[in-house]
Write a protein that binds this DNA or RNA. Sequence first.
RNA 1: CGGGGCGUAGCUUAGCCUGGUAGAGCGCCUGGUUUGGGACCAGGAGGUCGAAGGUUCGAAUCCUUUCGCCCCGACCA
Length: 589
Amino acid sequence: MQYWSKTYIPTLRESPAEAEIESHKLLLRAGLVRKIGGGIYAFLPLGKRVLDKVSQICREEMNAAGAIELLMPAVLPAEQWKAGPRWNAVREVMYSVSSAGADAKTSEDPQYVLGPTHEEVITPLIGSEISSYRDLGKTFYQIQTKYRNEIRPRYGLMRAREFIMKDGYSFDESDEKAEETYHQMAAAYEKFFARCGLTFISVEADTGIMGGTFSHEFMVPAEVGDDDIVYCEESGYAANVEKAKSGILMDGLAVEAPEGDLVEFETPGATTISALAKEPYKVAAAKQYKTLLYVGDDKLFAIVIRGCDDLQESKLGSLGYEFVRPATPDEIESVMGAKPGSLGVVNGTIKRRDRLDGVFADDAIRLIGNGVTGANKDGFHVKNVNIERDLDIDSFGDFRQVKPGEPCPKSGKPLKIARAIEVGHIFKLGTKFSESEFWGAKFHGSEKQIKPAVMGCYGIGVSRTVQAVIEQYRDEWGIVWPWSVSPYQVIITVLDPGMEEAADLAEKIGRAAESEGADVLVDDRDERPGVKFKDADLIGIPLRVTIGGRGLKEGIVEVKWRIEGDVRKVAIDRVVEVVTSSIRDKNSS
RNA sequence: CGGGGCGUAGCUUAGCCUGGUAGAGCGCCUGGUUUGGGACCAGGAGGUCGAAGGUUCGAAUCCUUUCGCCCCGACCA
């Protein structure tokens, strides 16, 4: 039982200017966190309690799924990362640390880094321990502060430079077992987010720099989310837009026969899809082949998509390059022979085809027959272009971004798109890390051969989850905590704290509530009732018991749920029972 | 890193354009009156106007530089 006067809950009537979105404002107003620097926050006592609740639920679900908790350091030797498979890709998000002294390394060549995640640490750690397949089938996890030099921290805890994450790593002897573990973890994640009260959806996701074979993200739908998810209510299909496919190709491929030979025509000044779609050319965007040039690991390659489509850059990851960036106009002209706006991949028109590492086309261009594309000659395009006959394409793939309303690849019904907050992400990693020759995790298999462990990794943004809950549970008055993660379940608002009878009753009710497992906050401040009610609503405690001098005279106290408007008057001799049974109901549901 | 915006008391802000000794509300302290949804009266404390440099008799205000923060884009739990 905590007394408000003894703890520290600095509520604010107005929102600090630094906060833009509601959940961030409430984090500050309810006295849960304070900003220390950009993307760096201190958890005040109330915020720490929520963090602990969420962490504890996470711990329980991880343990229930058979995972084992450990704790790794956050300060890590840079050497270990340099030996890993993704040093170049991750170093820009890592903070470097150098020890003081004459031989301290510069940030160009750091001696230590702060851990943004721990594959590079746990793989050699476990790898050096495990030598037999009999020791595999283990999943380790930790709940720890992570450091990422976010390019742009924002929205409070939503994207912070320092944040709390549950990260887990599984080691299995075979692909099948790894997949089983993956599904177990996915199930544990569902339980965890459900227990936090969140409405969420799990979606197929891009693996990004993590690599690996497949992955799912756990998304909380919210206007303020950073991600777009594509989903179909009919079939249950759901994917991050970075990964999502649509069923437009089910409509069929182009069947038009070539209408005639290729014809080059003059298009002075028309260097965009929309310019060609207008007079005098009138070529629909869906009939144009759009050619984009990218550089992957210093090699140029071309991507061809429909004029009406947008490239989804994440999908370029399937091409196997480590770094991908758009080519510069100079690079483009030197290889293609024309500036952007007149590019195409018609046979024989590319100036230096030998310098193109590849020409990749989106599957959807198969819907185009007798289309138009650039002639690789500034101010000229070509018409009657047909894929089989005319285009110099190495391979096809899925590179376009899905648009809302397109058919679901499973049901054919229109796809929807929504913003969401990513609160969890699980990956089946495979052997990307474990097969490292420097520090992999290899073991003796049952058939005497040495094999790398098949890994998975599983992340939950714990501090982000706290904010996602607020984003989902709030009203015009403040936070409306779900029972499970509320910093306190019961608040006893004592309107006349100086009155001995009131104070005694508060203690009696509080003790009874605690004995049922609830956390109790007693507002014993010498404040006016209005202030106390406003604060109780703001910090969002689910169950409020109000003890006032007026009620005591009538022999009653009031019981009110935060989510409801109704106040229940309860006789003093029944209040303990009412409160304890309410708590029992909540705890058992 | 590109584009935009903002830095004035613990919080919200006025003043800046058109230079002339910094103002309010909330919060805080003291006293009093109050006491069921952010009370009222009286008194009080609290500001190197983000920092540095410049222009000027004089700079919160004009100029330059710099730092910090927020928002939009690419990145992520």
